[in-house]
Amino acid sequence: MWQEICQARGPSGTGGHSRQYSRIKILFEKGEGVTDKIWHDISEDSLEVRQSLIEKLNLSELQRRILIENRWLPQAVEGGDWLLIKAEIPSIERRNVHWQGLTILLSKNKVITLHRDELDSEVAERIEAYRPGALSSSLIAATMIQFTVEQYMPILNSIDDVTDQLEDTMIRDPGKHQLQQLFVYKRQLADLRKVILPLMNMLNGLSNGRYSIFDEKCAIYARDSYDYAWRVHELIDTMRDLLTSALDMYLSVVSNRMNDVMKRLTIVTTIFMPMSFLTGLAGMNFSQLPFHSDVMFWITMALLVVLPILMLVYFIRSKWL
């Protein structure tokens, strides 16, 4: 099975890019890549490679412009003998969503894929698992798109697990690092949602027969990917709501702690108010006031001790402390 699949790629290291570009030219000049191979995988995408494909393939003007501009969001454009499919494979790198661009050029009996870096080995394993007679260019393209859609779920599961942990720790000990994590995950979900919506639109077109080049027998795979993408979209919206609720909970916990601190400071201020009044009154230098008496001195000292104790007892009974 794997012998039917031709991989046009240059060796790693010095000179790999130029040799890979030469290999592509040889494929088309000799006719080798046009007649007897099903899948041509180009793992070092570049402007030179795209220009070479434009020169050798019967592409529409819109497809040519998309290839040159290397547009980012998923889309599908049919023209000439080829169907151009753009997809993005997500992954998380350093708290940011990293997108591996995947360009698929599909004809009735061939598929060409362009991307940077190596594809996951699971893609090849899935394609090798098909029966020899069932393998077609549309099936290869549908399998790669299906793999692309499935890469969203591990990211969402990871965010969901961390969100649950954040909610537990925020109640016990809220901190600024938790707030930063919340904003990081909200940004990741926003990035995923930005791509999943056009991806759903593309999958809808593949599943309802909008493109004649895409084999109708493979529409079931596109429908399955569309259903999966729809569940991913719903889960993204649900998790955005959960993160918003977690953010509200964080602000509520911080506000409650601030209110508790203010309450304690208010109690301390309230306790010292009568003491400040008594010390201020007894400290006035007026001979008419009988504070030169020893009895009044001890009465004032007793009040300074008794009043705070009585106030503390009242606050405790009122459950303010």
Rank of each mutant, 00 (worst) to 15 (best):
Q180G: 00
K186Y: 05
R95V: 08
E125R: 13
E128Y: 15
L206P: 00
A219G: 02
G205A: 10
Y130N: 03
L199C: 04
V123L: 12
S158I: 00
R94E: 15
T103I: 07
Q146C: 04
D168L: 12
N204T: 12
Q178F: 07
L139V: 10
L106D: 06
P198R: 10
Q100Y: 00
Y152D: 09
T148R: 04
K108H: 13
V111L: 11
N201F: 04
P174C: 10
M200E: 15
I145H: 02
N157A: 11
L119T: 10
K194C: 08
A134H: 06
L106W: 07
G133A: 14
M202D: 08
D173I: 04
D160R: 08
V195L: 07
L139N: 04
R193K: 14
D191A: 09
E122V: 07
L119Q: 03
T163A: 14
S137F: 08
D120M: 00
R126M: 13
G133L: 11
D224C: 04
R94T: 14
I140P: 03
E93H: 08
N201D: 12
Q146G: 11
P174G: 00
L182F: 02
I140L: 11
E122A: 10
Q165V: 01
K176N: 13
V162N: 09
I196G: 05
D117Y: 10
I104C: 01
G101P: 00
R94G: 11
M153K: 13
D160V: 01
V149H: 03
S212M: 11
G205Q: 09
R116M: 06
M200V: 10
R187W: 08
I112K: 00
G101W: 00
A219K: 09
V149I: 14
M144G: 01
V184Q: 10
L192M: 06
R131Q: 15
L206F: 02
K108L: 09
S212K: 13
A219L: 01
S136W: 06
N201A: 12
Y211P: 01
G133Q: 15
D191Q: 12
F147R: 06
L106V: 02
P198I: 09
M202R: 06
Q165E: 13
S91A: 12
T148I: 01
C218M: 12
K176D: 13
R94C: 08
M144W: 05
D164K: 00
I213A: 01
K176H: 12
T148N: 07
P154R: 03
S136D: 06
Y152V: 03
S136L: 06
W99D: 05
T143L: 07
A134K: 09
A219F: 02
S212C: 06
M170A: 11
L139P: 03
I196K: 04
Q181R: 14
L192G: 05
K186F: 07
N157F: 11
R193C: 02
P154Y: 06
Y211H: 13
E93I: 10
L156K: 02
Y130A: 03
M153Y: 15
I196C: 04
